[in-house]
């Protein structure tokens, strides 16, 4: 009568998956229901201070259908990274799986990266005054775990994959459903792609992940 399923958490840290050649995330906007599970996963995984966001879900009013569209935003882990180029301290690095991370020991709090990022992905941690952002949960992926946001997503709208592995089922899925880069014209060669992305959505989330200075409503995007 015992279920044959193994207990997955017992293997964590013992079995490590091969590092990805280029780690990426596919966001299927058709599936997202705006539940903010990814936001809480990120906040609790990394103890992110209030007012700072590594991931954020925006609610967009559709003009036509009288309903809302949900849009999760995270760092795009660009391969042509504006932040990395802008940093005068060489504190922004690329890991072996091509994720872009900030070495806080080197960060000189110049804030050039904050300005350079077209996605608003970088914030200044109020406790340390250093720049910080999504590291695609390097602490988890090193142990063979998925990034925290991907792990919890109830509708599998976030999918973790190796963009340089043509046989990765997520990559095949992304190609089939015409996944697109957000703000393609920024020319940053991101590692995050969206299924079901439409131009009107991009305009609405222009200011990206962090709160804009005048924004008094965190979720809804004003027209």
């Amino acid at each position: 009568m015992i279920s044959v399923t193994s207990i997955p958490w017992e293997n964590i840290g013992k079995v490590r998956s091969e590092p990805k050649k280029r780690a990426g995330i596919i966001v299927d906007l058709r599936l997202c229901v705006g539940c903010h599970s990814c936001s809480l996963a990120c906040k609790t995984e990394h103890n992110i201070p209030l007012r700072c966001f590594r991931t954020r879900v925006r609610y967009l009013e559709r003009g036509d259908k009288l309903t809302l569209k949900f849009f999760p935003l995270i760092c795009m882990h660009c391969q042509d990274s504006p932040c990395l180029k802008a940093c005068p301290c060489n504190a922004i690095l690329r890991l072996e799986d091509k994720t872009v991370i900030i070495d806080k020991n080197r960060c000189g709090s110049e804030k050039a990266c904050v300005k350079a990022c077209p996605y608003g992905a970088i914030y200044i941690d109020p406790a340390t005054d250093k720049a910080d952002k999504c590291d695609l949960c390097a602490n988890r992926t090193a142990l063979g775990m998925e990034p925290a946001c991907v792990n919890v997503c109830p509708v599998n709208a976030l999918k973790y994959c190796d963009l340089e592995d043509p046989d990765d089922p997520v990559v095949i899925y992304a190609r089939k459903h015409d996944a697109k880069a957000f703000k393609e014209e920024a020319g940053t060669n991101p590692s995050v792609f969206y299924i079901g992305l439409e131009k009107w959505m991009e305009k609405k989330v222009e200011n990206g992940i962090q709160l804009s200075s005048k924004e008094d409503e965190i979720i809804y995007v004003q027209k």
């Binding site: 690095l93 690329r94 890991l95 070495d103 020991n105």
Partner: peptide, 16 residues
């Protein structure tokens, strides 16, 4: 620009 391993990164990040 240098590529570092994830394990190295965790060490760095853990330190601060």
């Amino acid at each position: 620009m240098s590529n570092i391993t994830r394990r190295e990164f965790i060490r760095i990040a853990g330190g601060i």
